[in-house]
Design a protein around this nucleic acid. Structure first.
Lengths: 209, 209
DNA sequence: ACTTGGTTAAACTATATGGTTGAATCCGAG
DNA sequence: CTCGGATTCAACCATATAGTTTAACCAAGT
């Protein structure tokens, strides 16, 4: 009896297909095939396509948030170290949960209400989301003079953009930068360093303590 | 006789709807309604949905490339000035052609063949695409010691990411940064400066001439 | 032995949607 | 005035797809 495993298979298959073909483009039959189950089983676990999508999307958002190691962020003893960990964690998440990330980006592109609900729920849940932790850290580092007085929101946005974007635009990146096409994993590792390098130099105060 | 204008109306409507709902999610009827024409007219100008999508996508790519002011890039007399113009131009394009940008991003997410074809055609067309111009400029600025010896591809990627990403993730940005929600245009202007600021400081050599 | 829940297969329904057709109208150019 | 392209409208067709139903199978637990 693989009930738990079956539901997981459905989730995994649905995530991939929704990410690739979009909410409308993914076919229920296709998902069933990919999950190696019968179409009836889909409706056994998720009555409608919308139900399935909502569940998969919620799951993707959870994984996204859970992927950060809050402990590691809180433990960092300097802004530089925090920055390095944040970037490394963000890039690693994108690399290992590419489809979840794509799904979230898709929902952003479409500007649907689903995303708004989840974001609001998270915002209401407190100030302990990774971006908020990091933003607070930026403000604190500015106060201590460790980094220049930049706009924290823009700095955060620039960092996240640098981490996520290569995964969003992977086909274009591979075209422009052939090395990434031949060894994506190596490219990803290099990416962590390069983003940290440029952003760190861009943020630190000229005469930091 | 609004034949030219009609085709344009179709293009505009299709661009918006394809960008919002995806290739599969956009409905022909919906597009016809938005273009304020009859469904028959759609097939009069574009026999199939795929035709329409291809045409719209190609158009978006053209607009994307044409949006850069190559002259301005070539005329910049320092790397800093070039960087400023490149960022400003990129952000301005995203702001004024958001839907075209979204369409291109969607195609990236889905990893379809259409994008690959267009990219290849552009790559074959010579070395005069804006990213290539800019990449060459980075290399030249490294050689002259104006900026540090960073990986040009990663630097370019970081810059583009910083410009595009806020438009991709606009709903999330507006949630995290309420100021952007209340005045997006002002946010966009600030964005240009902030990206330039961080990236410029991140790239320039400590003892630049 | 009987029940129950997971599972399959295949046929089926209902509907949405892409695409077609044909007749009618409008309008500017020759 | 007439011809032909642009345009509309409404009905229509064919198909793809979401979702349902039914009968049957099997394995585990009771």
């Amino acid at each position: 009896m693989s009930s738990a495993s079956t539901k997981q298979q459905i989730f995994d298959a649905a995530l991939v297909l929704f990410a690739r073909h979009g909410r409308a483009g993914a076919r229920m039959q296709q998902i069933a095939d990919a999950a190696q189950i019968n179409k009836s089983m889909l409706h056994y676990y998720f009555s409608t396509k919308a139900d399935l999508y909502d569940a998969v999307f919620a799951h993707a958002m959870e994984r996204f948030m859970a992927s950060f190691d809050r402990q590691a962020l809180h433990e960092a003893d300097s802004f530089s170290e925090l920055l390095r960990r944040f970037i490394s964690g963000y890039v690693a998440f994108c690399a290992s949960h590419t489809d979840a990330m794509r799904l979230i980006v898709s929902e952003n592109l479409r500007g649907g209400p689903l995303l708004g609900q989840h974001l609001k729920r998270m915002a209401d849940a407190g100030t302990d989301t990774p971006p908020q932790i990091f933003r607070a850290a930026i403000e604190s580092a500015i106060a201590s003079g460790e980094i220049r007085p930049v706009d924290p929101d823009h700095a955060l946005l620039t960092i996240i953009a640098g981490c996520i974007f290569p995964f969003i635009a992977r086909p274009t990146v591979e075209q422009m930068h052939p090395a990434s096409a031949s060894d994506w994993d190596a490219f990803v590792e290099t990416r962590k360093e390069q983003v940290f390098d440029v952003v760190h130099r861009g943020l630190v105060a000229p005469n930091a303590p």
